[in-house]
Design a protein around this nucleic acid. Structure first.
Length: 844
RNA sequence: GCCCUCGUGGUGAAAUUGGUAGACACAAAGGACUUAAAAUCCUUGCCGCUUGCGGAGUGCCAGUUCGAGUCUGGCCGAGGGCACCA
């Protein structure tokens, strides 16, 4: 028998699919559509195992849906703007474009070797002007709808690299690349008004039934809605301040107020901008502003003003006003009233500055209650609160207090969101230029539509620091309507690129606009989106915002949610290895002798560490290209799906991939047995279990694909192999054998497409294939396995005819030598009889 | 601190509505074939007594039930998210 030569077979089928453009699709209104999308890759150089897993999961689904006669859109593109290209360009002294394009071509070849059913005619790349031209139009569209604005805001500034850093690029207060201490710098930045849609983005999460709950919860928390109240405080002062407004979720604790705290950036701070002590205090506050943990752990600091705030519920109570380091300007109103008894931060602050602690909520109505070191935040009843006394906290107390405040024009009910507007300016070269210029008075001017795209100027070599666009005077200076202007040199955050690419895939060549309305109407929304959970908030929230923004004031576009189904896959992990000096060692440098691992070089023993997600720094990566070369794409696909459910992490192992490879070889042997068997001319049997086995398999595999239980599909493959292998030489009727074998080959084709296509060709399946239907009639069992329990313990499983009566079953039990023993000298107290399943006999 | 998820053999995991716990694999051990090795095939979760059978068993402790991996409450542990959000 021949061995299965995956090299020849896989290459052959990939060429056929390419040549026939087998996966190119067009709108077909007679067919149901299915849009299957995996998060597109950043072209960093080579594909990694994470990509392999992501795209295999998507490909199984796309192939399955195609076999179910859906019109399947399964495209691929490149998220090709971004920092790694700039960094690589700086290091290697070349143009980011050259580097990016080279990577794309390498990775495209690699992806093709995985045998993915991708419509390559729809390939897009976000760094191409054909793509970002439309993004610039969208920017201007949102600008016209007042969903884009410019304001001064603080950024993380790396003074050495002269660039803005994202929060996650600041490690312990230092730039990740330069190591310089990051400064807080105020810059003019462009923002998308994502907060305008806070309510919609939050509330429509409930309609996303095919999203993982985890992701919805994360987005909910991120948007962070709270219900509360704005309260006006009259101020006693010699300055021109008459009132300060605070936001609170606990207006019912107002009688417990003992101070008012303001953010150092609060408008009132302008009265203190010449106060030396205040300037010193403000500086002190900004020092503790780097990592989030340090903020949380930081001491409460305050600066006492000469102002007094009047309690609006009792004008005789006057409390001091402080600036405090724990009050944030960009949440609520940048001012809070302090109620130490019922808020831990306020209590810490009050202790430090010797302020009054007046409890106003107590757990029991009539018992005395004191607060010592721990603020009381539980439910209870109001006291020390005059006319509010005895209200139930929080059920009555909050609403009643708000009503009172509203009636007396002191406060107003208010819903607040934690979500902040999306800052989209990046002081970077390799990104989409913002289509704006500034006139002589520095007012922003839109670049007219006919002057789009604003192309990124070519660059031979990036300097080591800063944004080269700043220095390109020829490019920067531009005349708009005869007026001399200067271009915006910031580029857009690359998350903007990925916020609408799924629309572009519907009509990637459309020139007039980012997408063709008919195409988008047909294909959108994405039925199944698949990617890593690390994008749970940013990318997925931004994309949802983009749909809100496009449909806002636009009657031609009404897609509010881009992804109706979402699946977040786990990571690919591998054991980690260290040598005797605790240096990371890569799996290729190791040999295994009798289950123990040694360094190839000098046979020094290796310390085996925990399995962790593959990363270059831990040297535990496995190169998919090499694995495909050694074992073939089908083996890799099979292994990456086996063992762990796709939403969990999977352990890569050498043994595992080898066993997948062997399994495909076994299937090949089986295929040869089949060919030989049908060529024989011997007498054949009428009866066989083949239909039962096949239909059970089809039923299970269908159920498992529908539920993303891909690890179970692999188990199904092993099971069908084993059952088929047992009966294939049983002289089954030829037609029956062929028909069932064909169904099996089709059902395994989404997972191992090259192999099954080759087999189908060899066994002469030529007609158009589609997903086999389960014929339930074959699954009806005549015999039933009865579980026989005594006192809840299973003692035996006996096979009987279907639908026998309880009495008949009892009779059978009494006839059974073993079971009879359990009835000897016992009284039957009770019987639980579940027809065709189980009997539980309770004896005493 | 708050929120979410998860605890099943040596390992990754199955168990669709509460009804045979450990499917399917990996590893290890033993066996078969072989002059030998590789490859292949078979057996093996634990504790007891020779096949067979019995007992315990799904992080821990209770509860509901004829019956709990699955449902309820409490505790312990791991992972993830948010974090001075008023």
């Amino acid at each position: 028998m021949d061995r299965y030569n995956f090299k020849i077979v896989e290459d052959k089928w990939q060429k056929i699919w390419d040549k026939n453009r087998s996966y190119s699709v067009k709108i077909d209104k007679h067919k149901k559509k299915f849009y299957c999308l995996e998060m597109f890759p950043y072209p960093s150089g080579k594909i990694h195992m994470g990509h392999v897993r992501n795209y295999t999961i998507g490909d199984v689904l796309a192939r399955y849906k195609t076999l179910q006669n859906y019109n399947v859109l399964h495209p691929m593109g490149w998220d090709s703007f971004g920092m790694p290209a700039e960094n690589a360009a700086r290091q290697n002294k070349l143009d980011p474009k050259t580097w990016t394009e080279k990577n794309i071509s390498v990775m495209k070849t690699q992806l093709k070797k995985l045998g993915l059913s991708i419509d390559w005619d729809k390939e897009i790349s976000t760094c191409s002007a054909d793509y970002y031209k439309h993004q610039q139009e969208f920017f201007l569209e949102l600008y016209d709808k007042e969903l884009v604005y410019r304001k001064e805001s603080y950024v993380n500034w790396d003074p050495v690299d002269k660039t803005v850093l994202a929060n996650e690029q600041v490690i312990d207060g230092k730039g990740w690349r330069s190591g310089a201490i990051v400064e807080r710098k105020k810059l003019n930045q462009w923002f998308f008004k994502i907060t305008k849609f806070s309510k919609e983005l939050l509330e429509s999460l409930d309609g996303l039934e095919e999203w993982p709950n985890k992701v919805k919860v994360m987005q909910k928390n991120w948007i962070g809605r709270s219900y509360g109240c704005e309260i006006k405080f009259q101020i006693e002062s010699n300055k021109k301040i008459d009132e300060i407004k605070c936001y609170t979720t606990r207006p019912d604790t107002l009688f417990g107020m003992s101070f008012l705290a303001l953010s150092v950036d609060h408008p009132v701070s302008k009265f203190y901008e010449n106060d030396k002590e205040f300037i010193k205090f403000k500086k002190e506050c900004s020092k503790t502003g780097t990592t989030e943990e340090s903020i949380a752990a930081a001491d409460k600091l305050g600066f006492k003003t000469d102002l007094l705030a009047i309690n609006p519920l009792d004008e005789s109570i006057k409390v001091p006003v402080y600036f405090a380091n724990f009050v944030l300007m960009d949440y609520g109103l940048g001012a809070v009233f302090g109620c130490p008894a019922h808020d831990q931060r306020d209590l810490d602050f009050a202790k430090k500055y010797n302020l009054k602690v007046t409890p106003v909520v107590r757990p029991d109505k009539d018992k005395a209650f004191l607060v010592n070191d721990k603020a009381y935040t539980e439910s209870g009843y109001l006291f020390n609160s005059k006319f509010l006394d005895n209200l139930k906290v929080p059920d009555e107390s909050i609403d009643k207090t708000i009503s009172y405040l509203e009636e007396n024009n002191i406060g107003q009910k208010k819903t607040n969101y934690r979500l902040k507007d999306w800052g989209i300016s990046r002081q970077r070269y390799w990104g989409c230029p913002i289509p704006i210029a500034y006139d002589e008075k520095n007012n922003p001017v839109k670049i007219p539509k006919e002057m789009l795209p604003v192309k990124l100027p070519k660059i031979d070599q990036l300097n080591s620091t800063g944004n080269p666009l700043d220095e390109m005077l020829e490019w920067k200076n531009i005349k708009i309507d005869g007026k001399q202007c200067t271009r915006e040199t910031d580029t857009l955050d690359t998350f903007v690129d990925s916020s609408w690419y799924f629309l572009r895939f519907c009509s990637p060549q459309n020139e007039n606009y980012g997408f063709d309305t008919d195409e988008v109407k047909y294909w959108m929304p994405v039925d199944q989106y698949i990617g890593g959970v690390e994008h749970a908030i940013l990318h997925l929230l931004y994309s949802r915002f983009f749909m809100q923004a496009l449909s806002y004031k636009n009657n031609k576009f009404d897609i509010k949610e881009p992804f109706s189904g979402l699946f977040t896959q786990g990571m690919v992990c591998h054991e980690t290895y260290k040598d005797q000096n605790n240096n990371w060692v890569s799996p290729d440098e190791i040999i295994t002798i009798q289950g123990k691992k040694f360094l190839k070089e000098n046979e020094e023993p290796i310390k085996v560490g925990a399995s962790e997600s593959m990363s270059k720094s831990k040297k535990n990566t496995i190169d998919p290209e090499k694995i495909i070369k050694d074992y073939g794409a089908d083996s890799v696909r099979l292994f990456i799906l086996s063992d762990s459910p796709p939403e969990k992490d999977v352990q890569w192992s050498d043994e595992g991939i080898k066993s997948s490879y062997k399994f495909i070889q076994k299937l090949w042997v089986l295929n040869q047995k089949f060919i030989e068997e049908i060529s024989k001319n011997h007498a054949r049997n009428h009866n066989s279990d083949l239909e039962k086995i096949t239909n059970k398999f089809i039923k299970e595999i269908t159920h498992n694909i529908e539920n993303f239980s891909y690890n179970k599909i692999v188990a199904n493959l092993h099971e069908i192999y084993s059952s088929l292998n047992k009966i294939i030489l049983n002289k089954i009727e030829k037609e029956k054998l062929i028909e069932n074998y064909k169904k099996i080959l089709i059902a395994i084709s989404p997972v191992i497409p090259h192999f099954s296509n080759e087999c189908m060709e060899l066994v002469n399946i030529k007609e158009k294939i589609s997903w086999p239907k389960v014929e339930e009639s074959f699954l009806i069992e005549d015999n039933i396995k009865y579980i026989i329990q005594f006192n809840g313990k299973t003692r035996k499983i006996i096979e009987t005819k279907k639908n026998i009566s309880e009495d008949t079953l009892i009779k059978k039990i009494k006839e059974d030598n073993k079971l009879n023993e359990f009835l000897k000298n016992k009284n039957i107290q009770k019987k639980i009889f579940i027809p065709n399943k189980l009997i539980n006999i309770i004896t005493t």
